[in-house]
């Protein structure tokens, strides 16, 4: 079902050991995409201050749409306002959205946002600055702005390779897990972190298979069910009708029509 093409698949690598919580990415995103800072497409997850004085620590990481390989939101969206483009970007058509908010429940990463205080609210969600990329820029605003290169952007395979390279080059610096590699059936955003992802406040979407897969199993099963019900009902109707007519003919050989009503 996933639209895998030969086209370039984009991806992010986000390194929590580099993030300094400056929030420049949030500002850059807000300016680039003209969204209010109240409901941004990118935000900072963190551990808060942990440990005992003087051994205190605090880790943060920017968080935005993971751009899943088989996105739940795309499967859920009633009107197809969310879709996956040929570069693996999960894009949003704000002219279609009806504001049903099903995607907000379907997304295991709690990504789709909505400023409910607006009279006509719309979904707020990262689209990898697709308009900016189309204009020929090499990376989205957040990655271009990040002063410590905590967010880097490029080809999906390169990002994964870079994650592995950093983990091998600095044994002990990162926990042994790349968040986003298997979550929700695989995504295009990879996180490496010195602390467990639960402590960073990341959602625990650990399914090896995207729920979108199971969703399709049942929604595609429905037409089959419908056909079964329609054929079955017609069959039962005709069978019982025939039987009743036969019974009647045995009792009373005169043909009686229209015994259905009343």
């Amino acid at each position: 079902m996933t639209k895998k093409s030969n086209k370039l698949q984009y991806g992010f690598l986000i390194d929590a050991s580099r993030c300094i919580d400056c929030r420049a990415c949030m500002v850059a995103c807000s300016v680039e995409n003209n969204v209010s800072m109240k409901s941004t497409r990118i935000w900072i997850n963190g551990t808060g201050v942990v440990g005992d004085f003087p051994n205190l620590s605090r880790y943060t990481a920017p968080f935005h749409c993971m751009h899943c390989e088989d996105p739940s939101c795309v499967s859920a969206c009633t009107v197809g306002a969310l879709s996956q483009d040929e570069n693996g970007i999960v894009v949003y058509d704000d002219d279609r959205c009806i504001g049903c908010r099903y995607c907000m429940y379907a997304c295991p990463f709690e990504v789709p946002n909505m400023d409910l205080t607006e009279q006509f609210p719309l979904i707020v969600k990262c689209d990898m600055c697709v308009a900016r990329l189309d204009e020929g820029e090499s990376e989205p605003a957040c990655a271009a702005t990040c002063p410590t290169d905590a967010i880097i952007f490029g080809e999906q395979e390169d990002m994964l390779a870079e994650a592995h390279r950093r983990m091998e080059e600095h044994p002990g610096r990162y926990v042994d897990r790349i968040y986003g590699e298997h979550e929700n059936g695989g995504t295009s955003t990879y996180y490496i972190s010195p602390v467990p992802f639960e402590e960073l406040g990341f959602p625990l979407a650990q399914e090896e298979e995207s729920p979108a897969h199971f969703n399709r199993l049942v929604t595609h099963g429905t037409p089959t069910l419908a056909a079964g019900v329609a054929i079955g009902m017609t069959g039962i109707y005709l069978t019982i009708k025939r039987q009743k007519e036969d019974d009647k003919n045995i009792d009373n050989p005169v043909h009686d029509e229209g015994n259905m009503e009343e």
Binding site: V74, S75, T78, V79, Y102, A212, T219
Partner: peptide
Amino acid sequence: LGRWDRFWHFLVYPNINSALFE
């Protein structure tokens, strides 16, 4: 519906994978 002004969109923009569309 957040966008109640577009309630009719389900009639013209189908997503056959969506349970809510069905």
